[in-house]
Each structure stands twice: as C-alpha cells, then as structure tokens.
Design a protein around this nucleic acid. Structure first.
Lengths: 114, 114
DNA sequence: TATTATACTTACATAAAGTTAGTTACATTA
DNA sequence: TAATGTAACTAACTTTATGTAAGTATAATA
C-alpha cells in the first residue's frame, strides 16, 4: 500500500538476539573460549544469575551456544560458542572498532551527576 | 583480585545503545537518509510511537542522530544520522552478513506452533 | 550427618515496553 | 469564526523484562 523499505526479516531476527541487554557482552566473553557459568558471570559485573541463565538458554535455543555437562564433582558445565556463534566475532569486531572511534571515556564508569 | 577479562568500557557503552530493543532497526532505517518520525514508524512495523520518541531522544543525546525542525505547515521534523551514526553502517553490514549466513527463514514471521 | 561448591530456581520489587487515547500547533475548509 | 486534518508527540494504564535476595539440587568429603 505505502512504499516501505524492505526490512530484511533475517536482519530483524538477528537484532532480536543482539538487541537484548547483556547478549552482546555474553557473546564477547565467550569468544575467548568455553566458559563456565560462574566465569561468564565474573566477567560481566552487573549481570545477575537469573538473567544469565535466561540468556544462555535463549542462545542455546538459537544454536549460538552449546552446553557441555561434565559429570565430575562438583558437576562441571561449560558453555561454548557454536560456529554460528563464533562467526559473530565479525559483528563484535565492528562494534569494537566503532566504539574505539566514537565513544569517549572522560568520565568514570558510573558518573554521579546524572 | 580474581583474574577477569578486561571488558572494554567503550564496548560496553556501545552495547548500552545497540543492546536495546529497536535501536538497531531504527539506525538501519535511518541509514537510507533523513527521515520523518512517521516514516521511521512506518518502516518498523511493531514499534510504538512512545518507544520511538524515547529512542530518538536517546540517540540524539548520544550524538548519533540530529533533529531538524522545518517551520512549515504542518511543521516538518526530520531526523538525520550524524557521522557517528552513519559510521554504524559497518556494524549493520556485519550484522546483515551474519544474518544472511546463519538465519533461516523457513517458517513465517510469526510461527504459530510456539 | 553436616559441610562445601556450582549451577541453577523461586519469589518479589522495580524498570522498560506495549497499547490506547489525547494534546498541540497551524493551515485549510465550511 | 468554527470545524477539520495532520504530524509529532504526551499521558495513563497494562504487561513484560530485569534486578535482587534467598533457596534448592547434587555429590564428594570431613
């Protein structure tokens, strides 16, 4: 009816994943290799256990992450990126490049005067 | 204390912007040139006015978008990406490439059997 | 049996997003 | 002059997502 830009549904799908809080940081941390739950949590300061659990499940459902269970004592569970997940490195690199060019960091991490 | 990966604060900042629902799609639509409020809304189906207003303000505050007011009748307001915003094209291209490689679209946009 | 550690769950509070309706400003029309 | 129409919001309310704190499951060990 009206002429609208043809928004690629794959692009929309991609942003349903990336456009959620924490997802980008989780993937970035996992790009350095398989990680245990607590290691991911440790590397992403304000991320809660509850949300990390949810995100890992979503990413697993999306085929971006695999969950490995090692029946040791205590049980060891590792999360690893699939090829699909590792290929997001190109996206993360682009974000990093943009951030390096454009984000200033004069103020400390949590500015008070807000 | 513990050894954690040094999460680049610029990267975190970038994902505070990109890691919000709709932001990626809004920027993608704006990459095709200055747009009026209603045009952006028209090109992003399920995005509400309320959220679009908020996102445009955030993006303006982040220096990614400029708001131009043309005192015509009725008043015409156009939103345009700044250089900082246009430079996000590289990120969007990487997302598009990843999505083209990895996102399947067998099922219709809103699968029923979920 | 009690203790310890990891990887979750659950319950509840707050913040963000969705939905619908209304407002403002101005020119055109009746 | 009053009614109408349009774009760009804004307000009120509901629903969903996230934050926070505490609790659970499992298995080896003391």
């Amino acid at each position: 009816m009206t002429h609208r830009i043809d928004m690629c549904p794959r692009f929309e799908s991609a942003f349903e994943i990336l456009g959620k809080r924490w997802t980008g940081l989780i993937i970035r941390v996992m790009l350095s290799g398989p990680q245990r739950f607590k290691d991911i949590a440790k590397n992403i300061p304000h991320l809660s256990d509850r949300v990390l659990t949810g995100r890992l499940k979503e990413l697993e459902a999306d085929g971006i992450v695999i969950r490995h269970v090692y029946p040791e004592t205590p049980v060891r569970i590792e999360y690893e990126l699939t090829e699909k997940g590792r290929d997001l490195k190109h996206v993360m690199d682009a974000v990093q490049a943009w951030a390096s060019d454009w984000i200033e960091m004069d103020e400390p991490e949590e500015p008070k005067g807000k």
